[in-house]
Design a protein around this nucleic acid. Structure first.
Lengths: 233, 233
DNA sequence: AAGTGGTCTAGACCACAAA
DNA sequence: TTGTGGTCTAGACCACTTG
């Protein structure tokens, strides 16, 4: 009985619909009543029902099509939203002091993998930055980044003082891109940087970033053993 | 000029606001005009502006508070949404034939880790299922699952025929829960199951699931080397 | 106390896709 | 052709929070 949204609120309608789905009053794959009917039944405005069902559709529980009506998803695809913070804040949120060392910075042609990931034409040179992030003086994560030098302000930025990770978040407002997570065996080089055993299993995030179709950066973050990316569903 | 939403549409307003943010007309941390002003300036209804700004706030780009107004997020937290499909569909989407073998099924007390993950009291017994998912006859993923036997229909289900993964998605409508991703070194047992080298780096997803505060299942999915979880931002 | 976002309403028109 | 969801509007009231 606590935190119960008022009837007529879109949250209440959403929860009501959720109850119908969970209780199998509306079976998977089955069509549910249209917005106007539900609104009339519940005594609220159609736009309220629309808001509620739209949220459930965004969560993957309903499938909606004009004229086709709304159906309960037969095989709902779970969507897990992970928050990817700035590394420094991630470290601090885990209760450590953060540190940072720039290891290398040079202009050169990126490897094939990066060039394809950013959809660049052959011959383009990018700034290659390598850096180590520390948590309480201990290696936390290796940042291996390729940055488009044409990015406004990038060539003037001091990446020895501020990580490219943080500089980008602060200075390149919003971006499209792709992200991938995988596991990788520590090479001798990574093991030395991260202070872990050669061959250890490392968690890796790879991200490609554009702003309005302009390639900005490609980065691989390799975390020291034990790192976990967590999310509430 | 293509795919340009009409002025007055909430998408157009959203993109307009995005432009203001990217162009630093609205600087990070700075307060932006209130909804009523924007609506008047753009000549649309306040609810349209509200929808646009609400989406940007959900994306982490704006921070909104009643009376406090709307501000550009100083350190936007990127949110990456990963779609976590049924394993069988994941395999098929990657262009392989899917296969499945149930390896073990027994009722017993779960390890500490699982008991805490599901917030169960000591002594509770769960059904422990171990299964192997195949892609073109080759090992794809090990499913190590603890299932609450009180879950409706679960004890009657035939997990030799249908994976618990799929059964749950089909039969337990919606659920809250948590999910975590990490990397793990292959134990001898996992290496044997997945047909990979002992000590290989494996990608792991761990999930705990509840329905309305009732614990349903805890599962660890350990993927064969090479697996990548990908997402568009 | 008052400003700002959050939401509801009733009505309207439109776009899309199914019949 | 027509049913259904998608969206816009103008107005209203309310809830939260800040000054």
């Amino acid at each position: 009985m606590r935190d119960e949204p008022d009837a007529k609120s879109w949250r209440w309608v959403r929860d009501w619909a959720l109850g119908r789905i969970r209780g199998r009053d509306w079976a998977p794959g089955e069509r549910i009543p249209d917005e106007a009917h539900i609104a009339a039944d519940l005594g609220c405005a159609r736009s309220t029902v629309n808001r509620a069902l739209r949220e459930l559709a965004a969560a993957g529980l309903l499938e909606r099509r004009r004229k086709g009506g709304t159906r309960v998803a037969a095989l709902p695809v779970r969507k897990a939203t992970f928050e990817i913070p700035i590394i420094r804040l991630d470290i601090e949120a885990r209760g450590h002091r953060s540190g940072y060392h720039l290891l290398a910075s040079e202009l050169k042609a990126p490897p094939e993998l990066v060039r394809r990931g950013l959809k660049l034409r052959e011959g383009t040179e990018l700034r290659h930055l390598t850096a180590l992030h520390l948590a309480d003086e201990r290696p936390f994560c290796v940042e291996d980044r390729w940055l488009n030098p044409a990015t406004e302000g990038a060539e003037a930025a001091d990446f020895a003082a501020t990580s490219a990770n943080e500089w980008l978040v602060r200075n390149v407002a919003f971006s499209e891109g792709s992200i991938a997570a995988c596991a990788q065996t520590a090479t001798a080089e990574l093991a030395a940087l991260l202070g872990c055993a050669d061959g250890a299993a490392l968690f890796v995030l790879e991200r490609a970033t554009w702003v309005e179709s302009t390639p900005i950066t490609w980065v691989r973050l390799t975390y020291a053993p034990g790192y976990r990316l967590v999310s509430e569903l």
